[in-house]
Amino acid sequence: MSARAQAATAARSEPAALAADPILTVEHLTMRFGGLLAIDDLSFSAERGQITAVIGPNGAGKTTVFNCLTGFYKPTEGMITMRHADGASFLLERMDDFRIARSARVARTFQNIRLFPGMTVLENLLVAQHNTLMRASGYTLAGIFGLAVYRKAERKAVERARYWLDKTGLLERADDPASDLPYGAQRRLEIIRAMCSQPLLLCLDEPAAGLNPAESDELNRLLRDIRDHHDTSLLLIEHDMSVVMGISDFIVVLDYGEKISSGSPHFVRNDPKVIAAYLGIDDEDAGTGGAP
């Protein structure tokens, strides 16, 4: 994304916020549903090793952006590029959803949690490691004869699951069906399930929705930990500004499918355009206030 392209849009941006090593670049993304223009010529990028947030009031088109990124929708126009650290790059708008997860290594969570309710917590985490285990099981053939190579891979997969369960305090619930977990734990489980697929970019769709303050804090710790100690960058959607201000490195603000601002939390918070469009009220609430 060039500075010129940036200037062409009406959005104000913080000049220093231009990405140096973007893991994800979205250019001129447009999505139309019939007559409805859900996303209008959106461009932004997410820096490797950072937490990038896309915020905007309800109905701003945030989830649609995610669905385009992860292949559940095919965008009407635009280019979405995922760059791995080794230089490999993927044009996500041309890939099937499961290939985006498998090859481009983009994982996601859902606004209304999508677990495998009738499977145990541990099973949920093993399904997430499907492709690794599939290879280890020799595409089932080696597994059927119970070869050691598969048993070893499965042990490793269970170890990875145990690591994440331990980190999120879910170890005790490992053998319970996912549907028996309380809501906050289900949210965490969905996140660590996505982490078990070892993504390079993790997209979280309103991860804090419905959480109480304590759970929200815990979530923030988890997300920071993922950023700092794992090879995974984060992209998250929120409509609640207070959640993202504390943990985001970079924020993109959407309204009616258009980008109205982008930059550091500090910049965005003080952008009059954001305050006008997003909060519609006076300055003071912009720092702490939630969505209307």
Binding site: T70, F110, R114, F116, T140, I144
Partner: peptide
């Protein structure tokens, strides 16, 4: 045996939630 292999777990996961399966690269 298949139930304890990735393919069998993927079958059951498919029954539980197909969209979540796709988001996990299945």
């Amino acid at each position: 045996r298949l139930r304890r292999l990735p393919v069998g777990r993927a079958w059951e996961a498919l029954r539980e939630d197909e969209i979540a399966c796709r988001s996990l690269g299945i």
